[in-house]
Design a protein around this nucleic acid. Sequence first.
RNA 1: UCCAGCUUAGCUCAGUCGGUAGAGCAGGCGGCUGUUAACCGCCGGGUCGCUGGUUCAAGUCCAGCAGCUGGAGCCA
Length: 466
Amino acid sequence: MKAISISDILAQRIPTDGSVTVRGWIRTRRDSKAGLSFLSVHDGSCFEALQVVASSSLSNYATEIQRLSAGCSVIVHGTIVASPGSGQAVELRANEVKVAGWVEDPETYPMQPKRHSLEYLREVAHLRPRTNVIGAVTRVRHCLAAAVHRFFHEQGFYWIHTPIITTSDAEGAGQMFRVSTLDFANLPRTDSGEVDFQEDFFGRQAFLTVSGQLNVESYCLALSKVYTFGPTFRAEDSNTSRHLAEFWMIEPEIAFANLQDDADLAESFLKYLFRAVLQERPDDMKFFAERIDASCIDRLEKFVDAAFERMDYTDAITQLQKSHRKFDFPVSWGVDLQSEHERYLSEELVGRPVVVMNYPKAIKAFYMRLNDDDRTVAAMDVLAPGIGEIIGGSQREERLDVLDARLDELGLDKQAYGWYRDLRRYGSVPHAGFGLGFERTIQYVTGMANIRDVIPFPRYPGHAEY
RNA sequence: UCCAGCUUAGCUCAGUCGGUAGAGCAGGCGGCUGUUAACCGCCGGGUCGCUGGUUCAAGUCCAGCAGCUGGAGCCA
């Protein structure tokens, strides 16, 4: 008999009186002395668990079924019937309950049928996917990931698998993890006593990538519309609810495009993702609204219906100064926007997502395109109510002489960017792109306060146990 | 990394003025019931984060360390 997903049964896609097999894990067991037990069984296919009714007439009722506790795995053969109880439309009347795996000591099984703190669940990261909350996060995470690929595929983009290992130590986005096969107890040395990386696996220093952007630009200037979606690594000692040492990032890059095109792409992309979650995961979103963040559904519905406001950095500074608000960080032309400023702009001034464009060149990266005023670059940040910056992007500098001048200005080694400069020497075109932190997007959607709870196995300083 | 707070049973927490430890859930036993985080009764369960100090006496006061949480910085 073919096993059926609990989601299909609860959505009533399976006719009643049909014979089915269900496989999953026990959440709770309730006994009735009328001669039956109620088993709440989940299999991850949807938020709700299935109620299995096991009669005392089953041969293993006393020996096994009445010993079932949270976490036990079972295979149930039975019949779908309309439920006489009030909590569910249908339930499974069991003809046979086979125990696949027992919980060896129910008293110390870490996942109990009660509310656990998210901090505690992090300490049992191998078992936490069995909980309501992590199960819901996992399904929403998948829904978003699938929507990312679907959106780009429908728009004619190609997914580029940019490298995880890089030999560029100057990508400029923070501390990097070293990749090496050298024997740390016996390091090869040069004549001058330095570590001799020519002896290392790649014949030079190597690191884990902090961004796929520079690599993806090369494919952009051949395939026109491309994106990366993969893991990214930052070795910074940051201990916050918004940082991970290993996280996933989405970076589209479009050729023959300017900053306006980039902002248009960001807007339609985010709205597509959020619509997908609202349509595909109403069960999980209902749970987040009830238990995690009451406003999460409302926030997404407003987001997908609102046209993004566009505003120049210079105008944003003027608006902040005109607000006469007391900010902890004073506002003047040339400063980077702090989260308090970003929140004011999107939450109070505009009340919708805002794209701030054309920032001072001094506070932005070398590859961003210099504007004609010679003091701003074609950079943009998408600021969303409730979170602040959700996307950062720019039009890239496509003019070799201007790029070289910027590299010199910042004291960067032109040799190290040889292949990146080549892209400007051979058939250069205006192009643009942005970066979206995947986990931060999941946080925004679900209202989960800590980024460590929206990735299966979080890595952060001192933590890589699982 | 900086500032502040927190750490007590398997889990969530209470613990007054310094005087030798409590509840709910979970577990075991019994009762009751087409139950819904079921309910009722009884029972077992503790290196009070770790190390040191003050005191006749420390879960409680002090110091250091670790972890967690919130904020900051950095950013995605």
